[in-house]
Amino acid sequence: MDLSIPLINSLTLGSLYTLMALGLTMSFSVTKIANFAHAELVTIGGYVTALLVNWMGYGLGESLIAAFFASALLAVAMDEGVFKPMIKRGSKPLFLLVASIGIGLVVRYLLFIYADLNAVITVQAKTNVQLIGRFGRAGITTIHLWVFPITIVSVVLLHLMFHYTKPGKALRAMADNEDLARVSGVKIYTLRRLMWFIAGGITGVAGGLWSAYSVITPEIGWYALLRIFAASILGGLVSFWGTIAGGLIVGFAENFGITFMNTYFNVSTAYRPLISFVIIVIVLLLKPTGFAGFDIVGWLKEKVKGGGE
């Protein structure tokens, strides 16, 4: 059995899921909102990239930068427009979660309308992707030259930010204990905005890369959301390295796992999403803290039951 193709596929998808999941982990750890509208940040990034490349003739690099800003601004707008006012009125996390589903629906269907009118319900960024080398039976293409470096650079930059800059450390502090961060003088709303901006941005870049890697529709983020949550939950929804490991594990499980089950047990590849579901269920059942730290189930129980302070 030749594993070169599943290996390359796993790394590619794992990288994309990692980028998307890092945004979710950042926003969850700081705000404790399980943001389902995170899916739309992927989609918007994908569309901005595809349309700039196809209609405006921009290069992939420039378009990805634009995708970063588009999704970053959408993320900030979500928080400023919906989450923040709700939190100030004392909403429980459960309500915020439902609100995020609502935001997601609105954005998704607005995009559907736009895409329908402009005949881009399915679209691919027409970038020049070519075969540049081979690894076993797998082809190495120029898209890999975008995906891997961007993922690695993003991870390194985020790591440097979180550990060597003041706002980065303050974000980690906020994730740990928001009240204590406030009494330490952290301007939490300014930092929240910064966090949404960065989290939205990298998620948008991941969506943009997806539009060059494959085809996108207004539902692309929604379909990817399961994997994003699986990756993030593997890291307990709050752990940076846990999320990276989670993204890669989901990528590998979905490719190696399904290739293996298909080869030996004749399981259809259509059951691929099941793997992510199983990951989520197993983690929540056996180790609700993920790889690191945060008791999601306990936290949810407490928040759903008690009024929350």
């Binding site: 193709i5 596929n9 494959s214 379909y223 691929r272």
Partner: peptide, 12 residues
């Protein structure tokens, strides 16, 4: 499964 966002495993 044509509803999947990614079909790389099927192509593989």
């Amino acid at each position: 499964d044509y509803t999947q966002p990614d079909l790389s495993a099927d192509v593989e």
